[in-house]
C-alpha cells in the first residue's frame, strides 16, 4: 500500500468537509462537516503512525476522537440553545453581530 493513497483520501475528505462547513445552513450539518474534517485528519494521523511504525499516530487519533466527542457534546448544546432562542437551526439566522 502506498502512503499517499491514504493521505489523498484524507485530503479529499477534508476538502469535502470544508465545503460542507462553508455551505451548509443547518447547524447540525456544519457540525457533521467538521466531524468529517476531523475523521480525515485521523486517517492521516493513523496512516503516518503505521508508516513510521510508532504508536504516536494511534494515540493522537485517540485524542482527536476524544476531543471530537467533547466538541459534539458542547456543539449540540449550543445548537439546542440557538434553536430555543431563535426557533431556527439555520446558521444564516444567527447574525446578531451583523455590522
Amino acid at each position: 500500500m502506498l502512503l499517499n493513497q491514504f493521505l489523498l483520501l484524507g485530503a479529499v475528505l477534508f476538502g469535502t468537509g470544508v465545503y460542507g462547513v462553508l455551505t451548509r445552513r443547518h447547524t447540525v450539518l456544519v457540525l457533521m462537516s467538521i466531524e468529517l474534517m476531523l475523521a480525515a485528519v485521523n486517517i492521516n494521523l493513523v496512516a503516518f503512525g503505521a508508516f513510521s511504525g510508532s504508536v504516536a499516530g494511534q494515540v493522537f487519533a485517540l485524542f482527536v476522537l476524544t476531543i471530537a466527542a467533547a466538541e459534539v457534546g458542547v456543539g449540540l448544546a449550543i445548537v439546542l440553545l440557538i434553536f430555543r432562542n431563535l426557533h431556527s437551526s439555520d446558521l444564516d439566522d444567527v447574525d446578531v453581530l451583523k455590522g
Binding site: 462547513v21 462553508l22 455551505t23 446558521l91 444564516d92 444567527v94 447574525d95 446578531v96 453581530l97 455590522g99
Partner: peptide, 14 residues
C-alpha cells in the same frame, strides 16, 4: 467596512 462584517460565520470561514 461594515458591509464586510456580515455576522455570518460561514462567510468568515470562507
Amino acid at each position: 467596512v461594515r458591509t464586510i462584517q456580515t455576522g455570518r460565520l460561514q462567510f468568515y470561514a470562507f
